[in-house]
């Protein structure tokens, strides 16, 4: 009996996850279309580039959390290390941009 409940729970969870993945996948395609459309259109560069970066960042987050299962339990350490690495790289880039090139 207990096993059966577990199986049902697992099935429900898998279904839920599948739904999320399909939604995310659709969103990512939409984002990509938006990105291409923006580049094709005659919008101001100063407007397009930051939005493109924002879309890229969101896509990376989708990729990590929905397709590479970082939302699951047991991924705290990889997440921590990745954010640590992003933190160090961001500081480096910020420092070099602000102090050397500006």
């Amino acid at each position: 009996m207990a096993e059966n409940t577990n199986l049902d729970y697992q099935k429900k969870k898998n279904k839920e996850e599948m739904k999320q993945q399909v939604i995310t996948f659709a969103l990512m395609i939409v984002f990509t279309i938006i990105a291409f459309a923006m580049v094709l259109s005659d919008l101001d560069k100063l407007f397009v580039v930051p939005i493109l970066f924002l879309l890229a960042v969101v896509q990376v987050i989708f990729q990590l959390y929905y397709f590479m299962h970082m939302s699951h339990k047991g991924h705290e350490m990889p997440a921590f290390m990745m954010y640590g690495g992003i933190f160090a790289a961001f500081l480096t880039l910020l420092g070099l941009t602000v102090l050397v090139w500006w």
Binding site: M81, G84, G85, A88, A89, T92
Partner: peptide
């Protein structure tokens, strides 16, 4: 070790 991982590439 984490510091090595992030600092040595520089």
């Amino acid at each position: 070790s984490a510091l090595i991982l992030f600092a040595f590439p520089a």
